[in-house]
Amino acid sequence: MAPSPSAGSSPGAAGSTAGRARMTIGQVLDQLRPDYPGITIPKIRFLEDKGLIKPERTPSGYRKFAGDDIDRLRYILRMQRDHYLPLKVIGQHLDAIDRGLEPPPIDSVVPTVPKVSLTSDGLPSPESFARRSDVRLSRRELLKIAEVSDELLTQLEQFGLVSARTGTGHYDTDALVIAETARELAEFGFEPRHLRAFKTAADREVGLVEQVVAPLKRGRDAAAKGRADDVTSEIAALSVRLHATLVKQGLERI
């Protein structure tokens, strides 16, 4: 096997970070975040609960990660990000590797979805709101890539959180992000009915933006629509920043 899982190989004893040193879960995050910004402590714990990683435990119950554990995490995250493999399939790959076998070849059968443009603090930028996705996913592709069940997607549609494009029956990048997020929130006990509150809050914010932008759209010059679109994107980004910061501030008081 090749020495570095980040270069496309399988995790194993010869991994680039292999060694006897043990790291805390916080140190593991620092190692992984440059390549996988979305990694979180709950995500790592979830992968452990699924049996995909097995870090050592101290007598006090703290997790300690070896180099092989980090290589294994990189492999899992890369298979999810680059090949959209569900965890069940990744588990089969890891089982084969653990038994000294080569994992099955990976055939790309789904499209690559563009990443949303983010600012340095992780929040959406005005450009991300201005961008219009050309991605069109079938229902089957959406279920596969987002790793959600048909039942969960149906519930998300029933509560108005996800919908196919009118006239095409295809889903876009926004639907994919919402479905993936709903799946991750479900790990903490959130059901689609709980997420309806987020949709209601978002609709209110959209209403406020519309009030400001409506007069600009009524301009008679050729550049009116362009100015309105620019203002919409800027206000949207500021709105999300304010919303996220207020939530952060509120959580600090808990």
Rank of each mutant, 00 (worst) to 15 (best):
V162E: 03
E184F: 13
R183E: 09
F188T: 02
R193V: 03
L176E: 06
Y171G: 04
S163I: 01
E180N: 03
A164M: 10
E191M: 10
T168Y: 14
F198E: 07
A186C: 05
L185H: 04
A175F: 01
T173N: 13
V177N: 08
L185Y: 05
F159G: 02
F188D: 01
K199Q: 11
S163Q: 09
R165H: 15
A197R: 01
Y171A: 06
L195P: 00
G167W: 12
L176H: 06
E191V: 14
A182N: 00
T168V: 15
T168A: 13
K199I: 04
H194V: 06
D172P: 07
R196H: 05
F198R: 04
V162W: 02
V177D: 08
F188Y: 02
L185Q: 06
E184M: 14
E191K: 13
I178D: 02
F198G: 09
R193C: 05
A164G: 14
R196N: 03
F198Q: 05
L185V: 04
F198T: 05
T200S: 12
S163F: 02
F188L: 02
R196Y: 00
L195W: 00
V177Y: 11
L161E: 05
G160S: 13
L176I: 10
H170T: 12
G189F: 02
G160N: 13
S163Y: 01
G160H: 09
